[in-house]
Design a protein around this nucleic acid. Sequence first.
DNA 1: CAATCTTCGCAACCAAATTGCGCCCGCCTT
DNA 2: AAGGCGGGCGCAATTTGGTTGCGAAGATTG
Lengths: 152, 152
Amino acid sequence: MKLDDIDKRILRALQRDGRMANNDLAREVGLSPSPCLRRVKLLEEAGVIDRYVAMLNPAKIGKGQTFFTRIWLKAQDEDTIEHFAAEVAKLPEVLECYLMLGDCDAMVRVVAANIDAYRRFQSEHLSRIKGVQNVKTDVPSQTIKQTSEMPL
Amino acid sequence: MKLDDIDKRILRALQRDGRMANNDLAREVGLSPSPCLRRVKLLEEAGVIDRYVAMLNPAKIGKGQTFFTRIWLKAQDEDTIEHFAAEVAKLPEVLECYLMLGDCDAMVRVVAANIDAYRRFQSEHLSRIKGVQNVKTDVPSQTIKQTSEMPL
DNA sequence: CAATCTTCGCAACCAAATTGCGCCCGCCTT
DNA sequence: AAGGCGGGCGCAATTTGGTTGCGAAGATTG
C-alpha cells in the first residue's frame, strides 16, 4: 500500500494519541472530517493500523522493571523450539519473545516489580521450561527511550 | 493506587482494544456506562493508563525487522552517557534504549526494513555516535510473542 | 481537449460520550 | 442497634462527535 503525505501525518498523530477525535485529527492533517475518517478506515482495513491499545504505566501496577533474558536451549530441533514457544506464550510476564539467529536461541522481555520478583520468576518459570539449558539476564538501570512510534 | 477487580477488567479490555466504546466496555465489566466511564477517567488521571496509541503493522510500512543491539561505550562517565542518550533519542529508528547494568553499557531496539538497511543504519548512525566503542547485534529470526499487555 | 476517475467538502442524520441528580448500600458514630 | 454519613451506582437529558450520501473540483489518461 502506498502512503501519501497526509496518510503519514494521520499515522503519526494516531501513534501519539490513538483516541484523538476525528475532527481534531482532520484539522491537524489539513482535511475535513469525512475524507479524514475515510482514510483512517482504509488504513485500518489495509492493516497498516493494526490495532488501538491503552498503554499502562508499568510502575503504577507493580511492574516497574524490565528484564531482557537471553536463552540457550539444549537442542535446536523443531520439537524443542515448539515446546519452548508454547510454554513462554502462556507466561503473562513475558511481553516479548523472539527466536534468535547466532549466539543464543531465544530472547524474552519480562516485566516484574523488581529484581527479586524477577529472580523468582526466572527460577520458577523460565528455567523450568523443558529444553532450557541456560539463561543470561540483562538488566536495564535506566530507560532512555521507550516508544511504539514507528518512523515514517 | 489500589485497583479492584473491576478496574483490572477495564484495564485488560482497554489494553486489547483502546478504542472500545464505553457502552461495550461497561457491559463487559458488568457496570452501567456512567460509573464505567468515571473509572476510566480516574485511571487516566491517576496515570495508570498512560496513553492510547495506534499500533502499526511494521511490515506494512517497511519496518518489518527488529534488531537488538548491545552497545559498549569508551567510558562510563556522565558526559559520555548523556551525549549518547541525547543522540540516540534523535534517531526515530530506535524505538527503545536502555542503559544497562553489567556486561554492556546500553541496549537499543531498532526497526528497519531488513538486515541490509539495518547494517547501513548501524554504521552510519549508531557507530558514529561519539563515545561508542563497540556494538553487537542480536537478530531475531522469528517473533513468538509481542504484546504491550501488562499482566494484572 | 474531453471523458473519467478520484478525492474532497458540505449537510443531515445517527450514535456515543458526558453530565447532573437521586437512590441504595455499607460503614461509622453514638 | 438505630440513625446518619459517604461512596458508588444507574437513569435520563444534553451535548458532542462519528457516519453517510451527494454534488463539485481537480488530476489523469486516452
